[in-house]
Simulated assay, not measured.
Amino acid sequence: MKIYADNQMLAAGLIGGTLSRQTGNMRETALQTPIYQELDIPPEKILHFHQTHSDKIIFISSPDEARTFAQKPLQEADAWVFTNCPGWGAAVLTADCVPLFLWDNTGTVFALAHCGWRGVAKKLPYKTALALKQSGIKNPLFAFLGPHIQKCCFEVQPDTACQFSAQSVFHRDGKIFVDLNAEIRLQLEQAGLAPENIHAPNRCTCCDKENFFSWRRDHIRQNLLSFIYKPL
């Protein structure tokens, strides 16, 4: 099982990352359970929502609150923020969108966001990071951008390009492209993260067919699983 993760996130006592396509299409929820079991994560302790490419954030501030949320029907949102919630975690599904992981160096607070281009345009990375900053944590925050479509492949039309900052948009061979890494970095720095604490490897889901699903490339509904969990 191949997991794309950040060493500093693991050092903070968190378990998580993005699974490669070899584990199967994670839209099939039954395939998720054995993955969690292999990692000694109780599947029932991983929360889910219905992703809508929004800027809505769900806040979980205690194990009791997580337990209550787990018993409710799926809500619509695109980001999780956890504070003081050991024994719980969350997951998102992606296929070109950015799985954005955020945490402090103790793992006391952490977040996971599903950042499609619409969510990024609505400042979801900034809003998620700011929510963690405003939780009262005094430690520096870290970020990891999991595998997603990179600037080499993310061609857009002018009506999409105009929703991003100028430094994230470039032209090549008469076409327009957006650099989501650059845009998310900008938003995270605006929220107060140090540039050196933002890790954005150049792993393109559209280019790398061997390891990743890609909606842009294949137009098939197949998803990668990204998850984050704080053990007891």
Results as ranks from 00 to 15, higher is better:
Y4C: 08
D6V: 02
M9G: 15
L10N: 04
G13H: 08
L14K: 09
I15Y: 03
G16W: 00
T18H: 13
T18L: 10
L19A: 11
L19K: 04
G24N: 04
G24L: 08
N25V: 06
A30R: 09
A30C: 00
L31D: 03
L31I: 03
T33P: 01
P34G: 05
I35C: 13
Q37V: 11
D40S: 15
K45Y: 11
K45I: 05
I46M: 07
I46P: 07
H48F: 12
F49P: 01
Q51G: 14
T52K: 06
T52I: 06
H53S: 14
S54E: 00
I58A: 04
F59K: 12
F59V: 14
I60W: 11
S61W: 00
S61L: 02
S62M: 06
S62W: 02
P63I: 06
T68H: 02
Q71N: 03
P73Y: 00
D78M: 08
D78I: 05
D78S: 11
V81K: 00
T83D: 08
N84P: 03
N84W: 00
G89E: 04
G89I: 02
A90I: 07
L93Y: 12
A95H: 11
V98R: 07
V98T: 13
P99N: 03
F101G: 03
L102F: 03
D104F: 07
N105F: 05
V109G: 05
A111Y: 07
A113K: 08
H114R: 10
W117Q: 13
G119N: 11
G119Q: 14
A121H: 03
A121W: 04
P125A: 13
L130Q: 14
L130A: 13
L130P: 04
K133I: 06
Q134V: 09
N139F: 10
N139M: 09
P140D: 13
A143E: 05
P147N: 04
I149H: 07
C153D: 15
C153N: 15
E155D: 09
Q157K: 12
D159C: 09
C162G: 01
Q163Y: 03
S168K: 05
H171I: 12
K175H: 05
K175E: 06
I176R: 08
L180N: 09
A182K: 14
R185M: 06
R185L: 01
L188W: 02
E189V: 15
A191T: 08
L193G: 06
L193I: 10
P195I: 01
N197G: 01
N197T: 02
I198P: 00
H199K: 12
A200K: 01
P201H: 00
N202I: 12
N211M: 10
N211V: 03
F213D: 08
S214W: 10
D218P: 04
D218R: 09
H219Q: 14
R221W: 14
Q222I: 04
N223I: 03
L224V: 01
L225E: 06
L225P: 02
S226D: 02
